[in-house]
Design a binder for these strands. Sequence first.
DNA 1: TTTCTTGCTTAACACAAGTTAACAGAATAT
DNA 2: ATATTCTGTTAACTTGTGTTAAGCAAGAAA
Lengths: 221, 221
Amino acid sequence: MEDELSLGLIVKESLETRGFEVNYCQDGRSGLSSFKEYKPDICLLDIMLPIKDGFTLAQDIRKLDARVPIIFITARSQTPDVVKGFELGANDYIKKPFSMEELIVRIKARLSDNSGLIEQQDAQRSFVLGKYQFNYDKQVLDFQWKEKKLTHREAEILRLLCIHRNRVLERSLVLDKVWGDDNFFNARSMDVFITKLRKYLADDPEVEILNVRGIGYKITY
Amino acid sequence: MEDELSLGLIVKESLETRGFEVNYCQDGRSGLSSFKEYKPDICLLDIMLPIKDGFTLAQDIRKLDARVPIIFITARSQTPDVVKGFELGANDYIKKPFSMEELIVRIKARLSDNSGLIEQQDAQRSFVLGKYQFNYDKQVLDFQWKEKKLTHREAEILRLLCIHRNRVLERSLVLDKVWGDDNFFNARSMDVFITKLRKYLADDPEVEILNVRGIGYKITY
DNA sequence: TTTCTTGCTTAACACAAGTTAACAGAATAT
DNA sequence: ATATTCTGTTAACTTGTGTTAAGCAAGAAA
């Protein structure tokens, strides 16, 4: 959805070259009906559009979809315009002239915002360790019929180990992620947790938490 | 976290004038330790910082927290710098010179990205918890044929837990939202409510309220 | 070997949270 | 007006969790 025929077409074609599917409209009214029809993943709007301006279009789109990312791409670079853009629910505001590379990283940034929570859920939350089954959310470690309840700390450390299966997990990374502070005492505390986890995992000799002296730990299974 | 003493201070003071709480660091290393200590809602980084540059700092922060918004504010406006910034996980990239108004709307835009889903869920008033059905407005918890009436307090706490499903719900947040005051006695009172809720939810072992020592509770189902 | 460092293990400890019951005030019923 | 029930708070005691310390074991360096 762009104004100047030439620039709009250039953007459209550049994006298509990089694998984006683009719906290009030359005025605000057709922009809105195109939005309704195609339900795009993201909207790039100019402000100065014929028939219905970009600000109004953004408002209309927001009424239909509170979450779709809206980026203004416009020559109107005055602060009040930028502020208005954001206040109408835009997620970014790019001033002309701009480079295609910058436009693309900004598009990707806004696309990935919305998948943020999904990504988080993607982060693995359940693991099979040899004959054990570990569920991070429930904080339980199952072995055959018996179930061992883990504390939050235990579960966090075990999850970090599992995510780094067969690779070295640095002590400092665990300390920063779990304790938020890498100091001597927390490091000693972590030793204690490693001992506990090894005890819990002792029933299957295939599963081992190996030490990498001076660096960290590595789980193998 | 800024470089030029003067500009950084101006930004800090402008933001404070508008009610933001600002932690200003003059080099990358202190920026990182300040991040660990204060867990800010958003990070504004310059690229050219003494000791540890802003790109590296951004990477370090991303390792600790995959979701906190990071905005680069910098004089380095070349496209490759912008691209690098976004690739390291930045959420916006503002080029100097900029207006405070623009900075503020961009900060707000990034802050609201992350709270978007939470806000939306804040409105949720009815939940399915494993085999239970919980209606916040009616203050009832249904299990199969039987219906348990909840008190207002019980319903409020259960709702907060549900909204934060599989995430840790901080004690202080509950105390502030439900009691309006986070003190020792209210905290003990909250313990009693947690015990009650666990009893009510005991019929489905899939539903559990887990404790996270020193922080709060997490419901899983 | 000796010496130094790093990691392992156990136990004691402090404090956070769990449980139960008694209590007090408010709301409701008699 | 009085009794009863409901709701939330307070208290006392128990249990759970994470930290600290101390001694020992294993590796690396001298």
